[in-house]
Design a protein around this nucleic acid. Structure first.
Lengths: 280, 280
DNA sequence: CTTGAATTGGACTTCGCATTCCAATACTAA
DNA sequence: TTAGTATTGGAATGCGAAGTCCAATTCAAG
């Protein structure tokens, strides 16, 4: 048994394995090679399975893990799993990692809050950059470019996004109208909705009932719908012709709007450019 | 038990979950959402752990897997694991592909626009993180925490920020009122303004005249003002007790709102935490 | 060879997991 | 309401996994 502290990252473990490789016994060398060559199997398979693949005894794997300071195989396996998560496009894991690294922080100073929101926003935007919803964007742009009048609805936390879209669409000369239900006339505003129009609906859990109902009525009238929402099973996603799944981070119980607004802005500007380029 | 063949890929499973979602029972819906939202946990964690996270019974997870044609949970989990393995190596390649393509930018595709906005947002947020306006934040929080009623004004591109602030402040139980001038009653809404209140004014070049005038009238009445603006020489910065200089990036003639909203959000949440911590 | 130490194989034990099952509960329809 | 049905919670089960241990084997040194 070795007394070194067990490596916490796969990189550290790799280094450790490499440097100590020559000193290992025959069987442990065999496992070391396998671990370096097949990190994914190390992350996902059971001891028995890996033992078979590597052509060693299960117990040898436990010894190997213990030789590198882990309490057992499962303990070491976590390192391999964590690595898999990091390299996968999982922004939640990375965000959690960030917050934990931030660590000691007992108090929530305004500065800390700001830093957290900024960090969450960066992660969300990077995620969106890495994995942009291209087909949806293109279809949405085409749809919005030819609509006679674009109606926009979004309530509570989605209201700012709706307000922004209405503003931006008007600026690029696409007639847009915000359905804000002021004066209790929410559904009265729907009178003029027709199949030549388009509706942009924005809603996140818990979905505002009014938004859902507006989308339902519009769908019934054959109005094309573009949805910004958070899940494929959202009520407004299933009604939509084009829908975007937006993963905004949540800090202190408040969802960020960073990704939503970035998408809204892109939608408006891309529509504008589309019109320009097609001689609009 | 369902007789459909169990989906073999995560994409197929996602589709299956989505289409059958409405027909699922309450608990199964809950699991469906969790599975769609946290594919990585589904891949790596044990039934017991996932059950805890998703707030369901372990047995419900087995039922869920079986409802989708799998023999048990472990069977379904393999699909999530396979996906993790696939996406892990490819992510690096995709990222590289993006950066290379970035160079030869001839056309403005929707994808490019989205990427530009995301990149601009990241830069703005990183700058804010690097150089956070701590003293202003702290003074603003103190000011907002003791205001009787908080009035918020912001027009055009600043409107979303104002809408968001009004929403968020109300959520943390700080009475807030949006001055939106609907029905042409902009200045009529100022009647109740008093020195116990506070005004948050948001405006960027070219400064909306109405916003400036509201700020001026408020200042004349001795109302404390917090300004979000873009320059120390902005008309609403001069009038303010606390002001923030926000440098949001501009892409294709459209200023991003990323930094503004990040600050707005931090302001609201920090105020909320301040009240909690001081026993409000 | 012989001896002692290190390494290894593999049966055994223990523990924790996925899965089952049934009683309790929540719905639904009459 | 009430009866019947679907859904759910959670204890009980059995199985398979990780981890232990010791006898067998290999290796090194004299």
């Amino acid at each position: 048994m070795n007394e070194t502290a067990a490596p916490l990252t796969l990189d550290a473990l790799r280094t450790e394995i490499t440097t100590r490789y020559e000193a290992l016994s025959k069987r442990l060398k065999q496992i070391a090679r396998f671990a370096l060559d097949h990190p994914n199997e190390m992350a996902l398979e059971t001891v028995a399975t890996i033992a078979t693949r590597a052509e060693v005894q299960p117990s040898a794997l436990i010894r190997f893990a213990q030789a590198f300071g882990y309490s057992g195989f499962s303990d070491m396996q976590r390192v391999f799993q964590a690595h898999l998560l990091e390299s996968a496009p999982s922004y939640q894991a990375r965000f959690r990692a960030f917050r934990e690294q931030d660590g000691a922080a007992s108090q929530s100073t305004p500065e800390r809050v700001l830093r957290e929101f900024a960090a969450a926003g960066v992660v969300a935007l990077e995620q969106m950059q890495r994995d942009p919803p291209v087909p949806a964007l293109e279809r949405a742009v085409a749809l919005l470019a030819q609509a006679r009048l674009i109606h926009v609805i979004g309530q509570r936390r989605s209201a700012p996004v709706a307000v922004y879209l209405a503003y931006a669409l008007n600026r690029i000369l696409r007639p847009a109208r915000l359905i804000d239900g002021s004066g209790g006339m929410l559904f009265d505003q729907l009178g003029s909705l027709g199949p030549d129009d388009a509706l942009i609906a924005i809603s996140f859990t818990p979905y505002a009932p009014d938004t859902v109902e507006v989308a339902e009525r519009a769908a019934a009238k054959g109005v094309p719908i573009v949805s910004l929402t958070d899940s494929p099973v959202s009520p407004i996603a299933r009604l939509a012709d084009v829908w975007f799944e937006i993963r905004d981070a949540e800090v202190h119980g408040f969802r960020s709007l960073t990704a939503s607004l970035c998408l809204a802005q892109s939608l408006a500007v891309a529509t504008g450019l589309h019109l320009e380029q097609s001689g609009g």
